[in-house]
Amino acid sequence: MRIKYFIDKIPGGMMLVPLFIGALVHTFTPGAGEYFGSFTKGLMTGTVPILAVWFFCMGASIDVRATGTVLRKSGTLVLTKIAVAWVVAMIAAQFLPTGGVQTGFFAGLSVLALIAAMDMTNGGLYASIMQQYGSKEEAGAFVLMSLESGPLVTMLILGSTGMAVFEPQTFVGAVLPFLVGFLLGNLDHDLRAYFGKATQTLIPFFGFALGCTIDLGVIAQTGMLGIVLGIAVIIITGIPLMLADRWIGGGNGTAGLAASSTAGAAVANPVIVATMKPEFLPAAQSATALVAASVIVTSIVVPILTAYWAKHMKKKHGHLQTAADAPLQPTDAEVKLRNARSHT
């Protein structure tokens, strides 16, 4: 059976399919974890420790070395995305309660949901799009996007809006696994390769554990709003990202549009933040459902819009070299062979 093949056909499938299975378990057999106990209970309730290990491995996978062009492009996109999420949070904090809207079409919408949906880009989706429609430098810009992973940026934005006060040690605790992994991965390339392999492996595990905290009744209530949120993320973050890509990054807007998605890992942030600050618990479940819907919507719509925009810019300005078009660099052996031939 080609189970993984079909899961990969679903945008963010390795995260969302286990999450949905976990949500089914929680919705119809909410006491399953307590009933089985032991390792089964640990797997169903282990969101935080699983994410801690994943965050460590993510840090270890990032190479501190990168070209100036890659850093400029990725830095531009990352900072713009975070800045837009911060502005949205500042405005929304004036109108939305900490626990989120409780009634009407916008029931479940909260500042926590907005930030989590907007402050992280789906780096894998971005890289795959830019491999086809961008330059190799633009495709490599996902390097810094990995730094958005985890709750740190969400916590910083919430703290800056005055909606939450996080003690310094809380911030340190949130990023310490990442920093330790980052340090080890750059001190020893073998460790980077070893731990880096686990980043993808852990995704379905924390997806399932996260799903075990979700009641599908909440997703049913926020379904249409989740679609609206996904479209809003593309519009609200996509326009500034395209402008920043053109004016600062030196691109034509394609990379900015490709970065206007919601990261699959963002689904975990509402629960993590609520674990640290219990006042967000009433909003966490609805926020998780909304962010999950936004991941699906943006994963489908962003590649379509990016392809259209890239083709439009190609017609307007002529052929632009993509990462796929870039010539392969010769290996050391090929260089030596060419040098030997040139001296004969």
Rank of each mutant, 00 (worst) to 15 (best):
F6Y: 14
F6P: 02
D8R: 08
V17R: 10
P18E: 03
I21W: 02
A23H: 07
G33C: 12
F36C: 13
G37N: 10
F39K: 07
T40H: 11
G42A: 13
L43C: 09
M44D: 08
T47K: 05
A52P: 06
W54M: 15
W54Q: 13
C57W: 09
D63F: 04
D63Y: 06
V64Q: 10
A66V: 04
G68F: 11
G68N: 14
V70S: 07
G75C: 09
G75K: 08
L77R: 05
K81N: 13
K81D: 08
I82A: 09
V84R: 10
A85R: 10
T98F: 03
G99E: 08
V101A: 12
T103L: 07
F105I: 10
S110E: 01
L112N: 07
M118A: 07
D119Y: 04
Y126A: 00
Q132Y: 02
Q132G: 03
G140I: 05
F142W: 12
T154L: 01
M155I: 09
I157V: 15
L158S: 06
G159D: 01
S160Y: 12
F166C: 06
P168R: 13
Q169E: 14
F171L: 13
V172L: 15
F178R: 05
D188A: 06
D188V: 03
D190R: 11
F195H: 06
F195R: 04
A198C: 14
P204E: 09
F205A: 15
D215M: 02
L216E: 02
I219L: 13
L225A: 01
V228N: 00
A232D: 11
V233K: 03
V233E: 03
I236G: 07
G238S: 08
M242N: 10
A244E: 04
G249L: 03
G249C: 09
G253I: 01
A259G: 05
S260A: 15
S260Y: 03
S261M: 00
T262D: 05
T262W: 03
N269W: 07
P270C: 07
M276P: 11
E279Y: 02
Q285E: 14
S286K: 00
T288P: 00
L290E: 00
S294E: 06
V295A: 06
V301E: 10
V302R: 05
M313Q: 15
K314S: 11
K315Q: 15
G318L: 10
L320I: 15
T322K: 10
A326T: 15
L328S: 12
Q329N: 14
V335W: 06
A340P: 07
H343M: 11
